[in-house]
Structures are given as structure tokens and as C-alpha cells.
């Protein structure tokens, strides 16, 4: 069985020292090993941005696509080969700005993949512009007078879009993050894990210390029931989205693959492509 070291490769990430994404990478590697995956059974599909480089830093099949489209690519990979464990990942700009349409629809489609967002509330790779996750009043190169748009709440959106698994974590808490990724990978359906992953270079407000002071861990509420959707929405609103842990999980809804009529339980990619003469004749006959 593979250990987390086998999910490492010898590529040195081009992230800034102290970037939150290092922990996300480590957590994915640990979670994959902990649930018993071999490197070739995992495909990591990433978007564009600092965090999008993550697919190149994990020893697994990786595809680094185009900005905002990690989710549809990842869903295509899963449809092609159900035997693969598929992770889609990227930043808050990738998933909640340019790719927001895909995020909402991937949630409602509920294909069995895990989406890990590295949320740093800023555009890092383009050197510091506002993101949909930036707080109102947040000053960036593109909002010198402070952002005047309201902050997007991915957790609320996910719940209202029919999410079957919603979690949030903080890259400083490697243990919790690893546990949540394991849970997401094991969930039969679409899992969203939003990770506060501070940008140490361009975001001087939402720092490690700031998160430590402001986030609430759901462990503090022993009675919290993650299967209760109303309670989940209430808790998100009460904490203004600054909570970590497993927020919501619906274990009853089947995944898209299981609901699609005729869709085979085996990997489609392994099937014989040949159309038999008999099937061909049947198809043609309908046009006579």
C-alpha cells in the first residue's frame, strides 16, 4: 500500500515561502494514502492561478487545464473512468469568479468527485487584484478605494445548489484538513472543501493570525448535526462563513453516475469500442 511519500514528486513548487497551498498539497497526499489509494488511481485536475499548479506537485495523474474550467474537465475524466478517484482544485478566482457557473452546476450534478478550493481572498498570480471572496472595503490594485461589491459566500451557494458534501478548513490545521479531504474522497457524490489558504505576499489582511482569531471550529458544538441542512445554513450565517469542519453531508442522494440510465458501473474507458454488425443493422433499420 502506498504511503503519503509515494504521492510526492521531486518538483519544487513555485509558491512563495509560507503560502497556505503547501499544506493543502500535503493534506491531499496524506488523505490519498490514508484511504488506500495508489498514485495511479488518483487524478488531480486543476485550474489556473498559483494554486492551479498543484496538479504538478503530486505524484498522480495530473491535468492543469484552463482558467475556471477544472470542474468540467474533472467531471469528464470521472465519466470516462469511474474507477479513478478524481480531485478538482484551484483558487477562489478560478472557482468562484470565472468558473462560478461550473461550480454551481457541478454541485447540482453531483458526480463523484472532490473539489478543493484554495481560498486566499485575492488574485495572487496576477499580483494582487480583488476576488469575489475579498471583503467589502478590501484595498487591492484593482480596488484602490476598497472593494464595493459584496463578498460571495460559497458555502451558502453550495447548500442552496443542492450540495451533498460541504466542508471548510484552514491550511494551518493539517490534521483537520486531511480528515476532511479523506471524508470528501470517500463521499459518494460531489464534495466541496473550501480551504482558507493565506496569501502571504498580497493579502496583508486575511493572514494566518487573522484566521486563527476569527474562525470557529465546529468541534466546539458537540450537538452540531451535519445532516441537517437548515442547521448548516444557520451556522454558516451565524459565523459569517468563518467556520471550519464538516458543515453538511447528505449520504442518501445517489451520484450522477449511479442515476444515469444505462451508464455502466465499470470504467467506460476500458470498454470495447466495436459496434457489432447486429447492433449496426438495428440502428440503420430505424431510418428505412
Amino acid at each position: 500500500m502506498a504511503t503519503f511519500k509515494e504521492f510526492r514528486n521531486n518538483v519544487k513548487p513555485n509558491w512563495c515561502p509560507g503560502c497556505g497551498d503547501f499544506s493543502v498539497q500535503a493534506a491531499i497526499q496524506r488523505a490519498a494514502a490514508n484511504i488506500g489509494l495508489e498514485p495511479e488511481q488518483l487524478a488531480v485536475i486543476s485550474g489556473i492561478g498559483c494554486s492551479g499548479r498543484i496538479s504538478g506537485y503530486i505524484n498522480a495523474y495530473g491535468l492543469h487545464g484552463i482558467h475556471g474550467r477544472a470542474l468540467p474537465i474533472a467531471q469528464g475524466v470521472k465519466l470516462a473512468n469511474r474507477e479513478l478517484t478524481v480531485i478538482a482544485s484551484g483558487g477562489d478566482g478560478d472557482g468562484f469568479a470565472i468558473g462560478m457557473g461550473h461550480t454551481v452546476h457541478a454541485i447540482r450534478r453531483n458526480l463523484d468527485i472532490t473539489y478543493i478550493v484554495m481560498d486566499n481572498q485575492i488574485y495572487g498570480l496576477t499580483k494582487g487584484q480583488t476576488s469575489p471572496r475579498s471583503a467589502e472595503g478590501f484595498k487591492t490594485k484593482s480596488t484602490p478605494e476598497g472593494s464595493i461589491e459584496s463578498t460571495l459566500s460559497p458555502l451558502e451557494i453550495a447548500l442552496s445548489a443542492g450540495a451533498t458534501f460541504v466542508a471548510q478548513s484552514f491550511s494551518s490545521d493539517l490534521k483537520q484538513l486531511t480528515t476532511l479531504i479523506e471524508a470528501g474522497l470517500s463521499h459518494k457524490g460531489f464534495s466541496l472543501i473550501n480551504v482558507f489558504s493565506p496569501c502571504v505576499t498580497f493579502n496583508k489582511v486575511n493572514t494566518y493570525d487573522w484566521f486563527k482569531e476569527n474562525i470557529v471550529n465546529l468541534e466546539q458544538f458537540p450537538d452540531y448535526d451535519p445532516s441537517n441542512r437548515i442547521a448548516a445554513m444557520t451556522k454558516i450565517m451565524e459565523t459569517n462563513g468563518m467556520l471550519t469542519g464538516l458543515i453538511y453531508q447528505d449520504k442518501t442522494r445517489p451520484s450522477y453516475e449511479d442515476l444515469a440510465v444505462g451508464f455502466k458501473p465499470e470504467a467506460l474507458a476500458k470498454q470495447d469500442l466495436t459496434l457489432s454488425r447486429d447492433d449496426f443493422d438495428k440502428l440503420v433499420k430505424e431510418f428505412k
Partner: peptide
């Protein structure tokens, strides 16, 4: 299966993902 996507960008990128996956 046929999957009706949210837009044409999703349609084509999903097709790319699935072709990469081997179908």
C-alpha cells in the same frame, strides 16, 4: 451517456477531460 452541460465551455472541456480519460 449524453450529458447536457451548463454551457458550451463546459461541454467542450468535459469532452477534453473524457478524451484524456480514454473515452
Amino acid at each position: 451517456t449524453v450529458i447536457q452541460t451548463e454551457d458550451e465551455i463546459a461541454a467542450v472541456t468535459m469532452a477534453i477531460g473524457a478524451n484524456y480519460g480514454g473515452v
